[in-house]
């Protein structure tokens, strides 16, 4: 078991219609326990569909996985399991956070109660002590004055704080894998850097692996150990983040890196 990765995606193909080309084609990705892996790509590259496949969040009335495709988490096959079994994996062993926390948080409930509900759903025995645990976890995700924030509603919080609440919900039952889909893309740069730091610190403390889905090479540089580059539904290149950033091999990766307007170093105004 020891040389088996925490998450192994093998030869994943996803098709949303029989007539259209597949959204994802032959993608294989490994995430070892406790590591930080990135998937980078532009709109339509298939990076989110790949991530959603892990928790079977694609609309399966129209999404079809390839016969040969397989996704295992801790050795357990997810793609062919019944959805009822996946429900026990979601939030418990693997959680996902998204770009827009307002689409996750219910506007009419206090945020503390929403985090508590997630915790109690997975660990009913903690019902009595749940409030204290939630306040502790709000503190862990970097919310100041967690006892007061516990009683607040989503609209009373800034975008960065809402993102932290969503992270608190995602890690409430200590998953071994956190999937972050453009989780910091809508945030201001200073807030983005701080939220990434929080996710990194939580991952390190708990030995949690992170699969970071992003369009931003800067996020890869700051956060990831290893990265997969996706283009048109396929992985075109993968490797240690530092290697991909400094010596990309594939033409698409080179073009992507060259497109980023740099702040540091020599790249003065071209006009």
């Amino acid at each position: 078991m020891s040389d088996q990765p925490l998450l192994e995606i093998r030869d994943l193909s996803v098709r949303f219609s029989a007539s259209a080309p597949p959204a994802v084609r032959g993608v294989s990705i490994r995430v070892e326990a406790g590591t930080r892996v990135g998937i980078i790509g532009e709109s339509g590259s298939g990076k989110s569909v790949t991530a959603m496949s892990v928790l079977r969040l694609n609309d399966e009335r129209i999404a079809h996985y390839g016969e040969e495709s397989s996704i295992t988490l801790d050795g357990r096959e997810l793609l062919k399991a019944p959805l009822s079994a996946i429900q026990g994996v979601r939030g418990a062993q693997a959680s996902m956070i998204f770009q827009d926390p307002m689409s996750v948080l219910n506007p009419v409930f206090r945020v503390g109660h929403q985090v508590r509900d997630v915790l109690v759903a997975h660990r009913p025995e903690l019902r009595k002590t749940a409030k204290a645990l939630v306040i502790e976890s709000l503190d862990a995700v970097g919310i100041r004055n967690p006892a007061a924030v516990y009683r607040q509603y989503p609209h009373e919080l800034s975008g960065g704080m809402r993102q932290r609440i969503m992270i608190a919900m995602a890690i409430a039952s200590s998953p071994r894998l956190l999937i972050a889909d453009e989780a910091t893309s809508a945030l201001d740069v200073t807030v983005q850097a701080a939220v990434l730091e929080t996710i990194g610190a939580l991952a390190d403390d708990r030995g949690m692996a992170v699969l970071m889905i992003t369009h931003d090479m800067g996020v890869v540089a700051r956060f990831c150990d290893y990265v997969y580059v996706m283009y048109h539904g396929e992985v075109v290149e993968s490797g240690a983040a530092a290697d991909i950033l400094t010596s990309p091999q594939h033409d698409y990766t080179k073009k992507l890196l060259a497109s980023v307007p740099r702040l540091h170093g020599d790249q003065p105004r071209t006009a």
């Binding site: 100041r144 800034s158 960065g160 201001d188 740069v189 200073t190 807030v191 983005q192 850097a193 701080a194 990434l196 730091e197 931003d216 090479m217 800067g218 996020v219 890869v220 540089a221 700051r222 956060f223 983040a241 530092a242 950033l245 400094t246 890196l257 980023v260 740099r262 702040l263 540091h264 170093g265």
Partner: peptide, 23 residues
Amino acid sequence: ALIEAVLEPDPASRHRPLSIDPD
């Protein structure tokens, strides 16, 4: 602080510290 917080596609940016309180 704003310039420090920018995430650049440069492996050296991994360990640059932050100096602003985003709140």
